[in-house]
Design a binder for these strands. Structure first.
Lengths: 126, 126
DNA sequence: CAGGATCCAGTGGGATACTG
DNA sequence: CAGTATCCCACTGGATCCTG
């Protein structure tokens, strides 16, 4: 058996498929969209309003990539006016949960970060 | 009291400090470094080897920003040759845990993603 | 060993206009 | 409503060289 020193997980390897999977979702729009979809299917415009600061371009682009990789399911009702819904897949849902945890961390600690920043920027003077 | 429709969390607001906190850590190097530091303090070179694909520049830059915001503690032993250690702070640790969950998700589902991608790219033909 | 400084190509992402 | 198509620039981040 191999020695158990530093548990070098697969994701730490630059070329592993796990790393590729991680890099796919390691951006702020994915980290916001996945949690946004947690409360059930949402439409383009809903997401556009819900996720502040996202542009139509980035919304489509990110959703498309998530759909392509099976994290998000796109349902086109083929009606007029158009009606398209996005939902988390079974593969995407656990990731959504993990990102919700990140969001909660941000809301719980953003004040600590601000404090640390002030301390660092302040006294870090020569 | 307010109505409870879509639980619009703070992090969804483009200008909230929570969002700023999230954006700070919403990049692949932070998502890899935080988990890498979970098993105890590590030195520059250790991280450089452990986290595949990271450059010295991005390592320093990311660590510096995490330190500035109080997620990572830097300890300079002021010895020669230099000996500097990086460790998670109490604020950073829970985030490290959340990112570990993301990493585990990646390792558990990267095959599903590959399958979905092949299906999507294949049959999505006119 | 742990970095700082520069240069420079690639890309992320906004603004704007158009479409079925 | 739910996109697509361009233009375009700011920033990301790799490569390379230098230092206490």
């Amino acid at each position: 058996m191999k020695t158990a020193e530093a548990p070098t997980v697969d994701v730490f390897s630059a070329t592993s498929p796990s790393r590729a999977a991680l890099e796919l979702v390691a951006n702020k729009w994915a980290m916001l969209l996945m949690p946004a979809l947690r409360d059930g299917p949402m439409r383009n415009n809903e997401l556009l309003r819900r996720v502040g600061g996202i542009s139509q371009k980035m919304l489509t682009q990110t959703l498309r990539e998530l759909e392509r990789n099976g994290l998000v399911l796109r349902t086109d009702h083929h009606s007029v006016p158009p009606h398209v819904e996005y939902a988390l897949s079974d593969v995407g849902r656990p990731l959504g949960e993990a990102f919700v945890a990140v969001g909660r961390w941000a809301e719980a600690h953003h004040r600590d970060l601000a404090d640390a920043r002030r301390a660092f920027d302040g006294q870090e003077r020569g």
